[in-house]
Amino acid sequence: MRPGSRARLAALAALASLGACAGRPDPEQARTCRRALPTLVPAGARITVLRTGSGPQERSIRIDFAQEREGRTPLPRYAVCEFSGMSRTDLSGLTSDRGPIGGAALYLLKHYYLDTPDAALAEPGAG
Rank of each mutant, 00 (worst) to 15 (best):
F83L: 08
S5I: 06
L18M: 12
I47H: 04
D64A: 09
I101V: 14
P74D: 11
R51Q: 06
P25H: 04
D90Q: 11
P100M: 04
P42Y: 07
T52H: 00
V41H: 10
L18V: 07
L109G: 07
G4A: 14
L75Y: 06
G85L: 11
S96D: 06
A105P: 01
L75W: 07
R35V: 01
L50T: 01
I61W: 01
R31E: 15
T39R: 14
Y78F: 14
A126V: 11
F65M: 05
S84F: 04
A43C: 05
D90N: 06
D90Y: 00
G99A: 04
S84A: 11
D90G: 03
Y78P: 00
E82I: 00
L109W: 06
S92P: 00
G4K: 14
P3N: 15
P38G: 11
I61K: 01
T32I: 11
I47V: 13
S17N: 15
P3H: 15
R51S: 01
K110R: 15
I61V: 11
R24N: 10
L15F: 06
P74R: 04
T48D: 12
Q57T: 07
C81S: 10
T48I: 05
V41P: 09
S92Y: 01
S17K: 11
H111L: 09
R35H: 07
S5M: 14
Y113V: 00
I47N: 07
M86S: 13
P74L: 07
D97C: 04
G23F: 08
R59A: 08
A14V: 05
A36T: 04
A43W: 06
A79H: 04
S54E: 10
Q67Y: 03
T89E: 08
L37I: 10
R88A: 10
A20T: 11
Y113L: 02
L15G: 13
